[in-house]
Amino acid sequence: MAGRGSGGRQAVMGRPKATSRAALERLAFELFARKGFDETTVDDIAGAAGIGRRTFFRYFQSKNDLVWGDFEGHLQRFRELLAGTDPRTPMMTALRGAVVEFNRFDPEDVPWHRQRMRLILRVPTLQADATLRYASWRRIVRDFAAERSGLPPSAMFPRLAGYTVLAAAIAAYEHWLAAEPDTELSALLDEAIRRTGEGLASADLPDHRVGDELPDEDGRGGGAP
């Protein structure tokens, strides 16, 4: 969901100055694990990294922004995965494959990604930010569904696809976080989205006129494709 994360096992003490986004992420996650997200400040992160606040803000706009990593880059990768699917592949099969691949991680990165998603899904102060980020993720699914179905993005069916695929992915992640550490995330995502896809596939495709003139999630009008 949040895209590929950053790994790292070095201790905070004795660490050289952190001069990259990845190094700051790793260090901050170590602090979050020890002190808690809300109790860790930007000054704490910058001080442990041996940099000033001004340098921290060159890499991240806020502490919340750090948790998500390179989110825009992750979204672009998701778009590319969907764009690269075979047009002959059924829509939900293509979506399922892209989401599973998007959330595939090297074994050494899995513990860090688990920590990242635990923060995103369970820390109350991150929920407003998560709502905005997931709206961007959902729009990618919506636009893909619109293209495949021949409907405008403002129609009901593409919107439904965006919301249901996101809900399935979040459900899979919640189950993964509650499961044993060796539980396979890919298998959970595959199962959750497959079950969602069965429901969407069994529904009649809405009439092209339904919702064509409703504003989309960006507030713009729909119109014919």
Rank of each mutant, 00 (worst) to 15 (best):
A46D: 00
R114W: 02
R104H: 13
R88T: 15
V42P: 10
S62A: 09
R114V: 03
G69K: 05
E108M: 08
T40W: 01
E191S: 11
P225S: 08
L160W: 08
K63H: 08
I170L: 12
Y59S: 07
H208R: 15
K17E: 12
V123N: 05
M92I: 14
E72S: 10
W68D: 03
L31F: 11
T125G: 09
G8M: 04
G52V: 07
P206M: 11
R58C: 07
F71P: 02
W68Y: 10
A48Q: 08
T131K: 14
A178Y: 10
P215I: 00
A146W: 02
L177S: 03
R148C: 04
V67K: 04
G222Q: 01
Q61P: 03
A22D: 11
E101M: 06
Q10R: 15
F37P: 02
F157D: 15
D212V: 14
F57K: 01
M92R: 10
G8H: 03
D86R: 04
D143R: 10
D70P: 00
D43W: 07
E217L: 09
E198D: 06
S186P: 00
I193P: 04
A201F: 02
L214N: 08
S154P: 00
T196L: 07
I120W: 06
G73C: 00
N64V: 11
M13T: 14
W137M: 12
